[in-house]
Amino acid sequence: MSIVTLLSGGMDSCLMSVLTKETGRDQKPLFINYGQLNYNYEYKSVMAHASQFGFQKPTVIDVSGYGKIISSGLTDSSKHIVDEAFLPGRNMLFLLIASSFALQNKCSAISIGLLREDTAIFPDQTNDFIYSAEQTIAKALGQKIEIAAPLRDFYKKDVIELAREKGIVASYSCHAGGEVPCGMCISCMEFKI
């Protein structure tokens, strides 16, 4: 069956989508605008990546009001990009939207680009969160939608290396949303490790 891939335009999700394509599984890319500061660059990256690898045009879901009301350094430039980076409920929102989209489009699974659990800095990046979310969403939808995290055994250095091997060039990972990556946000710092 088909799978919904949460495609953010960052290197992790771009690699995840390429690895999914290599399995031969039909995927429906989904891009979520949650009000992120880097929306424009993420969106351009998603579209360029889809074009480079021959994916169908990603479906865009706009819930930008979420980031305006439930804000963080990812959605509000007056907040600290690192110290206030946690956006409460973001990954749960992504998984619920993607699962609902999957159900409507007869997909049996969704895929999110979370890396190794020992690199998790937020509570919604843990194995327990993924398991609990899958169970809760199944109850909410009346049907199980598998939540896959195919990069779960990867560190960022592994992602960078494999993304280069696969020829992934259209990714954008800075949370600040500038044309030139800020070099200070959590995402930029991952590339320095």
Rank of each mutant, 00 (worst) to 15 (best):
L37D: 01
I147G: 01
K28M: 13
Q143E: 15
T20V: 09
G113S: 11
L95C: 14
F94P: 00
I112D: 00
S2I: 05
A148L: 14
S99E: 02
S77W: 07
S171A: 14
E190R: 15
D124W: 00
A170W: 13
C174L: 08
D12E: 11
G113Y: 02
L95W: 00
G113P: 01
L103R: 14
K106G: 05
R164N: 15
P58H: 03
S171H: 15
L151T: 01
L15I: 05
Q104N: 14
P123W: 08
G54L: 02
Y155E: 12
I69G: 06
E84K: 08
K156R: 12
Y155G: 07
L87T: 04
L103T: 09
E161S: 15
K79M: 15
D128S: 13
M47A: 10
T126Y: 02
N105A: 06
C107E: 06
K139D: 14
I97T: 12
E165S: 15
R152E: 11
L93P: 00
A98T: 00
C174P: 02
V46N: 00
A163C: 08
S64I: 11
Q104T: 12
I186Y: 13
L162S: 04
V159G: 00
D83W: 08
A138P: 03
A138M: 05
C182M: 10
S108A: 13
G113Q: 06
K79S: 06
P150Q: 10
T136H: 06
T119H: 10
K21F: 07
I147F: 04
A163P: 01
A138Q: 04
T59S: 11
Q143L: 13
C14A: 15
G167T: 10
H80V: 09
Q56H: 07
V169G: 12
T20M: 15
Q56A: 13
A133N: 01
P29N: 08
E165H: 11
C14Q: 03
A85V: 14
A48K: 15
R152Q: 12
Q143C: 12
A98W: 02
A102P: 05
L37N: 03
L30H: 02
S108L: 09
S187R: 01
I147K: 00
E146L: 15
E84P: 04
D128W: 08
D12P: 07
P29E: 03
G67I: 01
D128I: 11
E165L: 14
A120Q: 05
I69K: 13
V82W: 04
D26V: 11
L93E: 04
V4N: 01
F101A: 07
A120M: 05
K144M: 11
V82Y: 12
T59A: 13
Y43Q: 12
G65M: 09
N127F: 10
D76R: 09
C174W: 03
A109Y: 01
S173E: 10
L115K: 03
V169F: 08
I121E: 11
V60Y: 06
Q135D: 14
Y43C: 07
S173I: 03
K166G: 04
F129P: 00
K144Y: 05
G177F: 03
A102V: 05
P150N: 10
G73L: 10
D76H: 09
S99M: 04
Y41N: 05
P88A: 09
R25D: 07
M47E: 12
S173N: 15
L87Y: 06
I145A: 01
S64G: 14
C182P: 03
L95E: 09
A98S: 05
I145M: 03
C185L: 04
R90A: 03
F94K: 00
